[in-house]
């Protein structure tokens, strides 16, 4: 360990000291909760990055009326699709916060050698990332509603879609960024890898909104979104942990 080296407060490397002080080690759920709290605190500390992500989302929404024309009927019809594309791109941009920064500042090595299973740490990180993205979307749904002239009746469907879809986006994104963490410049590669896997989420989320707009049954597409999430939830933390271990050689 380097001594006398001070790190900027926004880049506190991952450290399990806060857990290890307690002997004996706390029970599994308690460990997970501490990890989650730790990750959330780290996420919320990177304020300027978070603000940049939120502004990116907002700017995408504002660009659309210029590209498509300000016709309110058209905007209301394509609005949910625009919101979802902006969400998708925001999720893609936020991937840098998952493992790339950890690899850069050495936290990843700490995670790999930690006395807590890597899968647990990964799951906590993914959950924290999903919660932060969902929080940002909650804040942004009002401007989206106003700028795109969406009907308030679409909000519940959009909200359920976010709650089921955004964690899937984060889980898939975690997979791709774990695979590419050893490469330093990987933004374009990440996009190429992820878009095929993001497509089903986008399709079902938008078709739920469309069904609602036409007064049809919204259950089926939302159930598909839930099915995607239930498929990913138990498997991805393990695959991510395995590929993080592999990538470290």
């Amino acid at each position: 360990m380097q001594t006398g080296h001070r790190l900027a407060p926004s880049h506190v490397p991952f450290s399990l000291n806060f857990l290890l002080k307690q002997t004996p080690l706390p029970s599994t759920p308690m460990i997970f909760l501490s990890l989650l709290r730790h990750e959330l605190r780290l996420q919320l500390r990177r304020k300027s990055e978070g603000a940049a992500l939120i502004l990116f989302f907002l700017i995408l929404l504002i660009l659309m009326p210029f590209a498509l024309g300000p016709d309110p009927v058209l905007l209301a019809r394509v609005g949910p699709g625009i919101v979802w594309i902006a969400t998708l791109l925001m999720a893609l941009l936020s991937l840098d916060r998952l493992f790339v920064q950890d690899a850069r500042d050495g936290s990843l090595d700490e995670m790999l050698t930690a006395p807590v299973s890597l899968e647990k740490i990964v799951a906590a990180k993914l959950l924290a990332q999903s919660l932060v993205l969902l929080g940002a979307l909650l804040v942004m749904s009002l401007p989206a509603l106003i700028f795109l002239g969406l009907k308030p009746s679409i909000l519940p469907i959009l909200g359920i879609g976010f709650a089921l879809g955004v964690p899937s986006l984060v889980l898939l994104g975690g997979l791709a960024s774990a695979l590419t963490v050893a490469l330093h410049r990987s933004a374009a590669l990440l996009t190429l890898l992820l878009i095929p896997f993001y497509l089903p989420v986008l399709i079902f989320a938008v078709s739920a909104c469309e069904a609602q707009a036409m007064g049809a049954e919204t259950g089926a597409p939302l159930l598909f979104l839930g099915a995607i999430l239930t498929l990913l939830l138990p498997s991805t933390p393990f695959i991510i942990a395995a590929s993080l271990r592999h990538n470290q050689g």
């Binding site: 050893a182 695959i239 395995a242 592999h246």
Partner: peptide
């Protein structure tokens, strides 16, 4: 490394 990542 590329082989492992690609395989996954």
């Amino acid at each position: 490394q590329g082989a492992k990542a690609g395989g996954i």
